[in-house]
């Protein structure tokens, strides 16, 4: 059995396959595989008795349920007004130059993806960034690069 299939069946064995399990299951797959592959969505559909279009349509609604490949670490830079006012653009260009990727792209070693996010809820300590679930605030460009370098070592 493929890794994806096992992941899905284990989840369903534990939590059942009622419709309200769909989003937690998709979150679970993203946690393990960084994104939702076509294989994963088709398999979820089959296992839950839904159409693949329904699964894709639901997943694509939400920004965390990426249907395109993403790296192990997703860097989310807040782009809303309070961060904008605290030179978030400088951080974006520094990170982008450092990793040699543009917004929406993933490094060739599949380690980092760079995305811009709407308000992360740290406006008083702008500019803010998240790497997966970890929050970093009051950033400067050098500080952001240093944090990313630490992740590089992980």
């Amino acid at each position: 059995m493929s890794e994806t299939k096992t992941l899905i069946q284990e989840y369903i064995a534990l939590n059942g396959k009622s419709r309200n399990q769909l989003l937690p299951l998709l979150q679970n797959i993203v946690q393990h595989q960084n994104y939702l592959s076509e294989e994963a969505m088709t398999e979820v559909a089959r296992a839950m008795g839904l159409s693949p279009a329904d699964v894709y349509g639901t997943a694509s609604f939400y920004s965390y349920l990426s249907t395109v490949p993403r790296g192990k670490y997703v860097i989310r830079l807040c782009r809303n007004i309070s961060c904008m006012m605290k030179s978030q653009a400088e951080i974006l260009s520094a990170v982008s130059a450092h990793l040699k990727i543009k917004v929406g792209e993933t490094t060739s070693d599949k380690k980092f993806s760079l995305v811009q996010a709407n308000c992360l809820g740290w406006c008083h300590k702008a500019p803010a960034m998240m790497i997966n679930n970890e929050v970093f605030t009051e950033l400067t460009a050098p500080k952001a690069i240093q944090i990313i370098n630490e992740y590089q070592q992980k």
Binding site: N80, I81, S82, C119, G121, W122, C123, H124
Partner: peptide, 11 residues
């Protein structure tokens, strides 16, 4: 869900 820009009290 606290997603209104500039809001961080619920957190």
């Amino acid at each position: 869900n606290e997603s209104e820009t500039g809001t961080f009290k619920d957190r």
